[in-house]
Design a protein around this nucleic acid. Sequence first.
DNA 1: CGTTTTATTGAGGGGTATCAACGATGGTGG
DNA 2: CCACCATCGTTGATACCCCTCAATAAAACG
Lengths: 238, 238
Amino acid sequence: MPDDPFLQKLERAGKLSDEERVELQVLIKGRRTVLARDDIAISGSSDRVYLVTGGFACRYKTLQNGNRRIVSFVLPGDLCFMHDTGAFGRDLRVGALTPCTVADLARSRLIELIARYPGISRAIWWVTLRELSRAREWIVNDARPANQRLAHTLCELFVCLQVIGLADEHSFGLPISQTDLGDALGVSAVHVNRVLQALRAEGLITWTNHRVTIPDVESLKELAEFEPSYLCFDGYGP
Amino acid sequence: MPDDPFLQKLERAGKLSDEERVELQVLIKGRRTVLARDDIAISGSSDRVYLVTGGFACRYKTLQNGNRRIVSFVLPGDLCFMHDTGAFGRDLRVGALTPCTVADLARSRLIELIARYPGISRAIWWVTLRELSRAREWIVNDARPANQRLAHTLCELFVCLQVIGLADEHSFGLPISQTDLGDALGVSAVHVNRVLQALRAEGLITWTNHRVTIPDVESLKELAEFEPSYLCFDGYGP
DNA sequence: CGTTTTATTGAGGGGTATCAACGATGGTGG
DNA sequence: CCACCATCGTTGATACCCCTCAATAAAACG
């Protein structure tokens, strides 16, 4: 069964042929482990692409004052450093928020596959455009007050985890700290804590044992102005 | 002379063949005018891609409380709605901040060109990845206080305009309002005004007649923590 | 069981928002 | 050419959101 979250996610862009699926499966054979707080990239090797197969990671940048800003989460099935040849994103790093399992791919091989297989090409385009769409939505989200912002981020995580089978109808595991959440929201950890309590007090969420429960998803979406179309789960045209 | 800002910009990704250049030039023949404050997209037509050839525009989203958040500027030579087939970015719009001239392309034709010409394919990839890199940098920027944020945005505009010949050694025309700037920074117009005055008081910038002058570019970059590598002007690998 | 990380709470301050008003500017039409 | 009107820039006062610092409790970890 090709229930790998990676292939599962890629096929949202459109069906892959059996041949394409096999090529990709061969590509992502090896696995290694990354400790929480460590960076996923092997320093100095720019010819590698990383596929996170388990755990939570993030793309982030550290500012001069020491603050860290997370610009996106990296969930199982997500690729990292896919495009970072040469000049791109030199100072944007990818770090593990929890222990992660990672498969390292040779970028050159992936590029070959993209050139040869239209299905893979389309899938990689789709992944990239989704990242772009998500990044822009995060910019929009930064214009909202912290409670909406937090609600929005939880909605996004919920939907994205559901798609790869890591969330059930009303809850999902979220094994990251409030500090991490704060860095993703652009809000201090203390304030995350307070906003979180407010959401709990209103009965919108529960947060225990690293598990978030959303009793009424619609209510939370409404508070967050959450419109999932930007996540492009409906597939990708020509 | 191929001094068109569009081709000029695309060739940052790598040389285009004469044939590719001609194909693109044919594609962007027609021009129309868009008034300031109007949207650039022709409503209802999702099969069009828009090339801004003159003026300042922006991608933006309007929140439920009426606030507008600008997620990126669109400068001469930039493409819009390149990828918005179907599900993508349904509620992200592109509006003219100043009167703009626009060329409308058929998306299907552009896709053909991408499939046929490797140079064009590489160029479009480069444009897309640059957008992604910029979007993420904007997220990072949102974590900075307003004065740094403003300085950073001015630095970005300065560099981007210089590349297309719309800025000289120390200044550039910026024909947008402080309200627009505020929506791009995620800051109120009043605060933009105050921060602007602070930057002027420190001698870091001048702002008169819709022209921004930066006496000492290095100082402003330093304040902003501006690292232009994310703009990917060094080209794009394989 | 000690040690580190994380969650929580309080107090105080700073950065920005909001509201309101006024002046400056520029385009438009009589 | 001037009067008008809309937009934009500027300023002040007030309030609120959120940050920082600090301390304690709770939990995770080896």
